[in-house]
């Protein structure tokens, strides 16, 4: 039928594309019905050529680690624009459905758009099909969405996600947590090592986790390790924000477990952990 580039008006009859069973994917549907709503819509890549990389807001360090019974995802709160701090309290960690969470590093605006679309995508599939996607189905879909922004990435405007999820089909529920990383070209890699970090401070965060990581630790210890790793990243990477007790800004953390599913930790809990880490460091004089 006629393809419009606007969402259908809320009064007209549903067109054939809406009634079709051709796809259960929201992003595919969006691409045919309202392509201008896609993140990094056509033309944006060329148009952004004149835009210096420095002028675009970047999100920075994300860490993920598995623990006994689940997996967690944590991010610092800083967004930078060149040598300036663009935002001090940006939230880069998102619960995307009942058993998954995604965080983004790189061009913040693009990453946020991808995550927003991805969240709708997962829920849309679940509503249409009556069942949620499998964990591998979810990561595969995310890889496709990252790849569709390759054009933007080639212009230096790359945003990459880090995915954590709990595999409800896992044989051993204690090891059901999974971490999957992505590249701008849409390749995905499962991180079997138990931890991973992306973004500008990832080198330092990973080094910290290398020494701290304990696969048999519980959620509480894992939260502590994540905050330690982000502290180390902020210590050596100017683009990563450390705990900010003056403004009351602390990392955001999401955990995914069999019992509670994917949940954001309450701010007070992260604050307590962050204050303990800072106090510990002060004692050691680091």
């Amino acid at each position: 039928m006629q393809s419009s580039s606007r969402p259908q008006a809320p009064t007209g009859p549903l067109s054939a594309a809406y009634m079709s069973t051709a796809t259960s994917s929201f992003s595919e549907f969006l691409a045919t019905q309202a392509p201008d709503l896609l993140p990094g819509a056509r033309g944006l890549a060329e148009a952004s050529q004149g835009l210096g990389k420095q002028e675009v807001t970047h999100g920075t360090t994300i860490v993920a680690l598995k623990f006994d019974g689940g997996v967690l995802l944590a991010g610092d709160r800083r967004a930078t624009s060149g040598n300036l701090i663009a935002q001090r309290d940006i939230d880069k960690v998102f619960v995307t459905d009942a058993y998954s969470a995604v965080a983004i590093a790189g061009v913040a605006g693009l990453g946020l758009d991808i995550v927003r679309l991805y969240t709708v995508e997962l829920e849309h599939y679940e509503k249409i099909e009556g069942v949620a996607l499998s964990l591998d189905g979810k990561t595969n879909k995310l890889a496709t969405m990252v790849r569709s922004n390759l054009e933007m990435a080639m212009q230096g405007l790359a945003a990459v996600p880090l995915f954590v999820g709990f595999d409800t089909e896992a044989a051993d529920p204690a090891r059901g947590g999974r971490i999957v990383s992505f590249e701008a070209i849409g390749s995905r890699y499962e991180e079997h090592g138990g931890y991973h970090a992306i973004g500008s401070g990832s080198l330092f965060a990973k080094s910290a986790l290398k020494k701290l990581y304990d696969a048999d630790a519980g959620a509480e210890t894992a939260v502590r390790h994540a905050v330690e790793a982000l502290y180390d990243a902020a210590d050596d990477d100017s683009a990563t924000g450390g705990p900010d007790p003056v403004r009351g800004i602390y990392p955001t953390i999401a955990t995914v477990t069999a019992e509670d599913g994917a949940v954001k930790l309450p701010e007070e809990q992260v604050q307590a952990v962050a204050e303990a880490v800072v106090a510990d460091r002060r004692e050691r004089g680091e």
């Binding site: 809406y18 009634m19 549907f29 969006l30 309202a34 709708v120 829920e123 849309h124 509503k127």
Partner: peptide, 13 residues
């Protein structure tokens, strides 16, 4: 299905 597409599109836009 059509209704879900409609509202998801509307909520996204």
């Amino acid at each position: 299905r059509g209704g879900i597409k409609q509202v998801d599109m509307w909520g996204f836009a």
